[in-house]
Simulated scan of single mutants.
Amino acid sequence: MKSGKVRLTLRGAGTLVLGILLTGLGIWWRYPGLTGFGAALTGLAVAGFVSVLRSVPVEAQRDVHPRTVHRRSVCTGTLELASVSRRFPVHLDATDRIADEPVVVDVPPLGPGERTSVDYRIPTERRGVFPVGSLTLRRKGFLGMADSRTVLDDTIEVRVVPRVLPVRGVPAGVRRGHIGADERVEHGGTDLVGLREYVPGDDLRRLHWATSARAGALMVREDADPGRPHLAVILDDRPGGHSEPQGFEDAVELAASLLSAGMVAGHPVRLMATSGAADLEVPAGVIEAGGADADMVMAVLADLQPVDESANAPSQLPARDLDVVAVVCGANADLAPLLLDAGRASVGVVLVVDPNVQDMSAMGSALVLRAPRVEELIQAWDTVVAR
């Protein structure tokens, strides 16, 4: 903690000015009563100032939990206070700053040597990373004539990630063959579609020894698995595509829910933004391996905001990601290029957050689902797609 300035309040400053003025007038007019009254007012202001010259007799510690929280979920700040005063009670006001906005913390009076803990709500309506701090403790002086401030200057970052709503799952049995062939693999899982570096927990029987010898590191083969198709989610993050800010929030939460459902089911997933601001691949089985990659997906979605359309366009989805493609966009989006992306997949779905329409239709080889809210789009996905 660091001490701030001791200063007169508005009441104290007014009292001091009035006292000096009356004292001067009393002396000038030789009016002892007026002089005494002015001196008394001046003395009150000075006494109030002197009463807070000593630093706030309190030890303070603040924490926030959890540090990563889903939007609209509970995040709590905890302020622990311990009075070091041995004779007098301590009356404090506390104000914390959250995303540069002041939040008043209700602190009860502290008796001599008393300890207390105060919980207060951290707002989680907006996605992103927000600083919590610094926290200011203010002690009022005698009769409210002055106050002193102590600043708890440590700052804690809170990451608000999108909500994840329950999704039934990803359609199974639609894996394409290797090297982008159009035939589907209906049985077995021996069709080689890629190689990646070994991570602890991988099945040693899937090691590709020839490639491992050439690369100087253990490499694991990725085989086609009809029960675990690739899921690619393309999120339209262009500002003109969404009719209102809440529409983009629903789109982000829909993307988060679909990706989370795929990862929980053990599918390899990929997140792409139409602006090129995000392109993230997550291999199969990350939840069982500890979930670091899954946390990265939520972190990327937490920071994603609508960007200018002049940003770099994303690369085209490779053939191995064309099993299930879900395109998430707003009501004002240009559907033509999005339908092309979805139409290349074995199962292509365009999910449109449209505040005015709720329906489903087929455009070419892609299915188009429209609904005003994320909950209704997920319900349509569960009914029509993940049967």
Rank of each mutant, 00 (worst) to 15 (best):
residue 272 M to V: 14
residue 271 L to V: 03
residue 318 P to R: 09
residue 239 P to T: 07
residue 232 A to Y: 01
residue 268 P to M: 05
residue 308 D to L: 09
residue 279 D to H: 07
residue 246 Q to Y: 13
residue 293 D to Q: 14
residue 294 A to F: 09
residue 285 G to E: 03
residue 294 A to L: 10
residue 316 Q to H: 15
residue 312 N to W: 03
residue 315 S to W: 11
residue 257 S to C: 08
residue 245 P to T: 13
residue 232 A to V: 01
residue 283 P to T: 01
residue 277 A to L: 09
residue 284 A to H: 00
residue 301 L to F: 10
residue 297 V to C: 03
residue 242 H to C: 04
residue 272 M to Q: 13
residue 307 V to S: 14
residue 242 H to L: 09
residue 311 A to M: 09
residue 251 A to S: 11
residue 302 A to M: 00
residue 270 R to M: 10
residue 236 D to R: 02
residue 311 A to Q: 11
residue 285 G to K: 05
residue 274 T to I: 08
residue 261 A to S: 10
residue 260 S to G: 12
residue 309 E to D: 14
residue 288 E to P: 02
residue 249 E to Q: 04
residue 255 A to R: 05
residue 287 I to H: 09
residue 271 L to K: 03
residue 239 P to M: 04
residue 274 T to P: 08
residue 305 Q to D: 13
residue 300 V to H: 13
residue 250 D to Y: 15
residue 248 F to Y: 15
residue 306 P to A: 02
residue 291 G to S: 04
residue 273 A to W: 07
residue 295 D to K: 14
residue 258 L to A: 07
residue 237 D to R: 08
residue 288 E to F: 08
residue 286 V to I: 11
residue 277 A to P: 01
residue 293 D to W: 08
residue 272 M to E: 11
residue 312 N to K: 12
residue 255 A to L: 12
residue 279 D to E: 12
